[in-house]
Design a protein around this nucleic acid. Structure first.
Length: 573
RNA sequence: GCGCCCGUAGCUCAGGGGAUAGAGCGCUUGCCUCCGGAGCAAGAAGUCGUAGGUUCGAAUCCUACCGGGCGCGCCA
């Protein structure tokens, strides 16, 4: 459904050389100028006229249908006054018919997508910086699902590595022997401090650090006892992490363990292909190294990529190649991976290697770090704001507010509302910022419930719910034409229909931040309408129905937008 | 040093070739006998990092510089 198709068709009837895509519509900058503005720059070029001349000819020569009430020219712009009731009616009807899928471009129907995100080291409770990855990944998952993709969410469990080795050592040292079958003597919450201590000690105590590597080497050879210990520790951490993330509504379909990709037979083909190109060699110290210069890398920096250590143990990047091949073998139409911007070069190197060997790499989505005022977060140094603490505080603050607003509701209901509001605040604060920007973490602004926040959008929905409860039943069949007399009703209609373009662009850019921005603008537009236009007390019944329908369509649109951000609406708050 | 990203109001952020650059927070002022004040309306606040260039038109594209973030051979 394209609202201005009739206008475009009329113009093309007169000027056949103009393409539909050349005709760009936007709300007129001021309501006095008209309802819709057409920019003629592109189309004018096509016709071979200067934009102002072309605009004038459109106004004079084209005969428009009943949708258009008035045409005026302002320089290169053609401003239309349209039949608001007719077009608005079409918009509302469309939204109500589409319901929860209003806005979807259905670009993913009958297609499969695989997305990997979060993939935190299973060593401690996640901090809000890591959560940015999870939220972006989860939001993209929802967006792809909305578009019709069958999405599978993968979490790569890095259950190998020196850091896990150090953790295992420390726990064993302090609490004695354990394995996969005896319950660990510690809880998830204890791990962070143990991890911090272990890292500090490894810096000073060389023997300790070496023991960590030793454990890793044993792990790599498949020693069952070591494997059991690693699994015990990583399971504890992973389960704890999953629970925290689930509180934010983030879930996963598949957990892939790094330790399953040691010495993967698929890697032989990759190394053989690289050897064919003379791009892999064993260096003087016995390491297996890729020379990326042989496969298209131009800079000196990052030219060499080590696959295996001299002692024969594999590097993370080597195992990751196998994992990527494993993911690509699933045959999804779209493969995404969400990575911190510190992984950019690494991901490029992986891509180069895979493509040189005749495989394809997933598409990367990057995000910049959330930093503290004091500098960047570091789990190793314990310099973090934990996601669970952040969420706890958000819930605490939301509960206070819900208590005073919804005193009549049972406690269980209030708890649900407080938790949804808290999640809205937390997710919105992070998701609304474009991922390529650093975020300086601030407790106050990210836990605010007023202004440009998730709860503000939720509040707008709750307000509509309340209003529609009082209004009563909406007509089953919305009328073809609405009564739209004020500028703010019309502006709201225009805002609602713009949702589809926002989604299309979000899908294309793999970025849901604009969806958050859109939700804010729409909520603001609605609240403005709400204060200016009474619904129940509108002068005529036709007007009451029109406005009530406009409210319902707004709620649907906001609810769809919030759903993509992983935020649930509430009918009271 | 080289590469990638960012620089817009006091602060946090939108806008990423087109009409007078927009929000929120904070500040000033109105609005609850009125559908929810987690709200609305208005005001003050900007050489869009700097300097060149491309264009009918640049916050937006290009180049250089400045400032910040990230990365650059046996961490993951």
């Amino acid at each position: 459904m394209n609202l201005f198709d009739p206008i475009s068709a009329a113009i093309r009837a007169q000027f056949p050389e103009v393409e539909t895509d050349d005709l760009v519509y936007a709300p007129a900058p001021k309501p006095e100028l008209g309802d819709v503005a057409l920019r003629t720059f592109v189309a004018a070029k096509r016709v071979g006229l200067a934009a102002p001349q072309f605009a004038a000819r459109i106004a004079k020569e084209v005969s428009f249908g009943p949708e258009v009430a008035e045409v005026t020219v302002s320089g290169p712009y053609v401003n239309f006054r349209v039949d608001r009731g007719r077009l608005g009616g079409r918009v509302i009807k469309h939204i109500i018919e589409e319901g929860a899928s209003f806005g979807s471009g259905r670009t993913g129907v009958n297609r499969r997508a695989l997305i990997e995100h979060t993939s935190i080291n299973p060593n401690a409770s996640p901090h809000v910086g890591r959560a940015r990855n999870a939220m972006i990944g989860d939001s993209l998952t929802r967006l792809l699902g909305f578009e019709g993709y069958d999405v599978s969410v993968h979490y790569y469990v890095n259950d190998m590595g020196r850091q896990i080795g150090l953790l295992v050592l420390s726990i064993e040292e302090r609490f004695g022997h354990f394995d996969e079958h005896t319950p660990l003597p510690i809880s998830f919450e204890d791990v962070l401090q143990i991890y911090v201590d272990a890292n500090r000690r490894a810096e000073e105590d060389e023997a300790f650090a070496a023991k960590g590597y030793g454990l890793l080497a044993k792990m790599e050879t498949g020693d069952p006892e070591t494997k059991a210990k690693f699994h015990a520790v990583t399971n504890l951490c992973l389960n704890g992490q999953i629970l925290v993330l689930a509180r934010l509504g983030i879930n996963y379909d598949v957990f892939d363990r790094e330790s399953d990709f040691i010495r993967d037979p698929r890697l032989d083909a990759v190394v053989a292909a690289l050897a064919e190109l003379d791009a892999v060699f064993t260096d003087e110290q016995g390491r297996l190294v890729v020379d990326l210069a042989k496969i298209g890398h131009t800079a000196d920096e990052g030219r060499y990529f080590v696959l295996m250590r001299a002692n024969g143990s594999s590097m993370y990047g080597y195992r990751d190649l196998a994992y990527t091949l494993h993911k690509m073998e699933q045959g999804a139409d779209l493969n995404l991976i969400v990575l911190g911007e510190d992984h950019k070069l690494y991901a490029q190197q992986q891509r180069m290697i895979l493509e040189a060997a005749g495989f394809t790499a997933p598409e990367s989505v990057y995000y910049a770090y959330i930093v503290l005022k004091e500098g960047k977060m570091s789990t190793r140094q314990g310099k973090v704001v934990l996601l669970s603490e952040f969420l706890d505080e958000a819930i605490r603050r939301a509960a206070v507010k819900v208590e005073e607003q919804c005193a009549d509701l049972p406690e269980a209901d209030r708890d649900i509302i407080a938790s949804r509001v808290a999640v809205a605040a937390v997710r919105f604060a992070i998701l609304r910022v474009n991922p390529n920007k650093n975020v300086v973490f601030d407790w106050e602004s990210s836990l605010s419930f007023t202004g440009d926040t998730g709860p503000y959008v939720q509040y707008s929905c709750a307000r509509i719910c309340s209003l529609l409860r009082k209004y009563g039943e909406l007509p089953a069949e919305p009328p073809e034409e609405l009564v739209i007399e004020t500028d703010c009703e019309w502006a709201l209609c225009m805002k609602l229909i713009a949702f589809r373009e926002v989604i299309a662009s979000a899908v294309q850019q793999r970025n849901t931040a604009p969806v958050a921005q859109y939700a804010l603008e729409t909520a603001r537009q609605f609240n403005s309408f709400y204060h200016e236009c009474p619904v129940m007390d509108a002068p005529t019944e036709a007007q009451q129905v029109s406005r009530a329908l406009l409210c319902a369509a707004t709620r649907q649109t906001l609810s769809n937008a919030l759903a993509l951000l992983g935020i649930e609406v509430v009918d009271r708050m």
